[in-house]
């Protein structure tokens, strides 16, 4: 893949730490776009604030780097006003589910056609390692120096309950699956959510003794499994990967077209 066709070289090097998983997500996101043969001018990437959000600056699409947590709200305005555009909304875990939690569930409920990618590194990286709603009980962070008593959201269950019509999960170890899932999510008509576990060796790992990026990715390999696999039955602690939800539901912009039709009768 000629990656230079899809990035803004002028703006490199990127700001991510060495070993960060976000570059793997960027790479595989671009692969998905290339394999789908999408026109770059048809894509709007909207992001919020945080390490993950910087992804939008590096890609040669229409890019909107917005406010912390608000990416989906901006994206809703873009999509609704110009439904032919393809919306990709990469978000961090705190971005999507703490400050942006309300927008997340409501975008899912509307089933508006866009692809939300939760780049889950379980920590606030840009501000230096505070716990997020996805860090999980018992983890350590600069704001949980004794142990985190906050329980984490299950992104998949939350998205499904909120009404998302496509919900999937994978990790940066499973790079090819990232490409595959993003492709399917983009082609899905409706609100799609992909949670991608992404390592943060700088903060999450250092606080929680997970080793370097290689050990963290090995952890993803050893602690995840395909949905409904035999391994999962034997070891319920394993995190499932794959597509959890894929259902045909009325899409929001299509539904609004019916409103326009009714109003003009």
């Amino acid at each position: 893949m000629p990656v230079k066709d899809y990035i803004r070289e002028r703006f490199f090097p990127h700001i991510w730490c060495s070993g960060c998983g976000h570059g793997i997500i960027l790479n595989n996101m671009l692969r998905a776009v290339e394999e789908l043969d999408m026109d770059k001018s048809d894509i709007v990437m909207v992001s919020g604030i945080g390490c993950s959000a910087r992804i939008s600056g590096y890609v040669d699409f229409h890019t909107l780097h917005t406010l912390h947590g608000r990416a989906l709200a901006f994206a809703t305005g873009v999509k609704m006003s110009q439904p032919k555009l393809k919306l990709m909304v990469p978000m961090g875990d705190g971005d999507a589910l703490a400050i942006g939690g309300n927008h997340f569930i409501h975008a899912a409920r509307r089933n508006i056609d866009m692809t939300a990618i939760v780049m889950n590194n379980r920590i606030y990286g840009m501000t230096g390692g505070q716990f997020s709603p996805l860090s999980g009980y018992g983890t350590l962070a600069t704001t949980a120096p004794y142990s985190n008593i906050d329980h984490n959201f299950d992104v998949v269950a939350l998205a499904q309950a909120a009404g998302a019509s496509f919900v999937a999960r994978t990790t940066t170890f499973h790079a090819r699956q990232i490409t595959d899932l993003i492709k399917q999510a983009i082609e899905h008509r409706g609100f799609s959510v992909i949670e991608i576990l992404s390592q943060c060796p700088t903060y999450f790992s250092r606080k929680n003794n997970m080793g370097g990026q290689i050990e963290m990715m090995e952890w993803y390999k050893n602690n995840t499994t395909r949905i409904g696999s035999k391994a999962k039955q034997e070891n319920p602690q394993l995190i499932e990967r794959g597509i959890f939800v894929q259902r045909d539901m009325p899409e929001y912009c299509d539904e609004y077209d019916k409103v326009i039709e009714a109003a003009q009768k």
């Binding site: 608000r70 901006f74 994206a75 006003s81 927008h103 409501h106 109003a263």
Partner: peptide, 28 residues
Amino acid sequence: PQIGGKFLQMEDEISSICAIIGASLTGH
């Protein structure tokens, strides 16, 4: 909708202003 425009009732005022900014960027 009578004039073919778009109306959104958002989840709060924060998202309302964000949505109109997004729509302004597409030329509206």
